[in-house]
Amino acid sequence: RDGSGNPSRILKLATDITSIKNFQLDLQEQAEQMSAQEEELRQNLEELTATQEEIERRTSEIESRMLAVNQSGISSIEFELDGTIIKANDNFLQLMGYQAQEIEGEHHRIFVSKELAKSKEYKEFWKDLGKGKMHNGEFERLAKDGEIRFLQGSYSVIRDANGQPNRILKLANDITSIKKFQLELQEQAEEMSAQDEELRQNLEELTTIQEEMERRTSEMESRLVAVDESGIASIEFGLNGTILNANKNFLKLMGYQLSEVEGKHHRIFVSKELAKSKEYKQFWEDLRNGKMHNGEFERVAKDGEVRFLQGSYSIIRDASGAPSKILKLATDITSLKKLQS
């Protein structure tokens, strides 16, 4: 203002804040980027959590299925690709007469004769397995006490996430008693071949029995590639006894098509008397409470004929350890029961 107090000129005073504004804009841009990154990380975390939960669920079910294999009496043993023993279940150890620490780290050749272990055939056997080619059939093996054991089963290839052979899993049933019985039948047949017509007829009956046992043995040759490929008759139930699924071996044994049993209750396989009994109700109550059952079971096929099964009702558990389903694994022992009777 001038001397009279009237406006005379304008004076501007200022500081340069350009760098501050630029810094503020940079901070804002960084904050937006970090927010976007946090959202992406959150989504990735959710996906990883879902994947982990699925892996845990599948792992739990696989563990339950392998437990069912152990409970069913099936012998199992795992090897490295070179034949080195990793581990074996109690059924295998008991069958062969070993303790776990006696065989872990040893080579498979401890179960075969010295002649076989040195043979070209044996080397090719492990070479094939290393390339991913499975083997199944009957195998003659030596127990710790030097006695021969006859095993019916398979050497299956366990693969890694890339589909490459990683380990070898053997699943097997002990058929030593059956083989010995077959040999006894063969000796009887040879003795009877020189006898009269009555003995010839007896021979035909024994031959028929032998052929039936050979047929069953042939069926067992395709059984053990893990559990489903093992050839063991299997059927799954809900905890209330409702049939969920059954493999071809079980359906063939009982004379059904899958569509005929799905959704039905287990009682279609038992007599009316047993289905109404307190014992039968307690049987399913035990299973629902997580108590497995194994042994011999008398069941009724579609044609009304009795089938005798040797096996187990095992508990499939969910990721939390609670009973989820019932898995039955069994072998048909009807003809042997008839022979015993």
Rank of each mutant, 00 (worst) to 15 (best):
E115I: 01
S8K: 10
S154A: 15
E115R: 06
N240G: 15
K87D: 15
D26L: 11
L336R: 14
A172F: 08
D160W: 04
G5E: 12
G311Q: 04
Q182M: 11
E285I: 00
G255H: 05
A246N: 05
S341P: 00
I148M: 12
E47M: 13
S113M: 04
L206A: 04
E204P: 00
V69M: 08
R9A: 10
E104A: 06
Q30G: 02
F111N: 07
E205L: 07
D26M: 06
N240F: 06
F283V: 04
R200Y: 10
Q282V: 10
R167G: 00
K276M: 13
L171T: 13
A31H: 07
F283R: 03
E121A: 14
K133S: 05
E198R: 14
G263D: 05
K131T: 14
L151F: 03
N166K: 15
I168N: 03
L185C: 09
L13Q: 10
N240E: 13
S75Q: 14
E205Y: 06
T242C: 02
G137A: 09
A31W: 05
L327M: 15
Q33S: 10
G83N: 02
D196F: 06
E190A: 07
K133F: 09
G132V: 10
L185P: 00
R317I: 02
D82P: 03
T51V: 00
L239G: 05
Q310H: 09
K133I: 15
G5W: 02
E54L: 12
S35F: 00
Q30E: 12
K21Q: 08
K127G: 14
M292G: 08
E115S: 11
K276E: 15
M292E: 11
T18A: 02
E147N: 15
I85Q: 07
V225F: 13
A88Q: 02
G132P: 11
S324V: 01
S222Q: 12
L142Q: 11
V261E: 06
A50C: 00
L309D: 04
E29I: 10
G290K: 09
M66F: 12
E262R: 11
Q195T: 03
E124V: 12
L95M: 14
T84D: 12
E115F: 05
K170N: 03
E38N: 14
E63T: 15
K264G: 01
I315P: 05
L258T: 04
Q282N: 14
I77T: 12
D2R: 00
A14E: 11
Y122L: 05
K278S: 09
R42K: 13
S277T: 03
V112T: 06
E32T: 13
L336T: 12
P7A: 12
G241W: 02
T15G: 08
V69W: 00
G290S: 05
N166D: 12
L224Q: 07
R288I: 01
G83L: 06
L329D: 11
M254N: 04
T207W: 04
A330T: 13
K325T: 01
L203H: 03
A161P: 03
N294Y: 06
A31E: 12
G132A: 09
A330D: 07
L27P: 00
D174P: 03
E285C: 00
I62H: 05
S320E: 15
V270N: 08
S113I: 03
Q257I: 02
K133Y: 10
D90T: 07
H293G: 04
T176F: 04
E205Q: 10
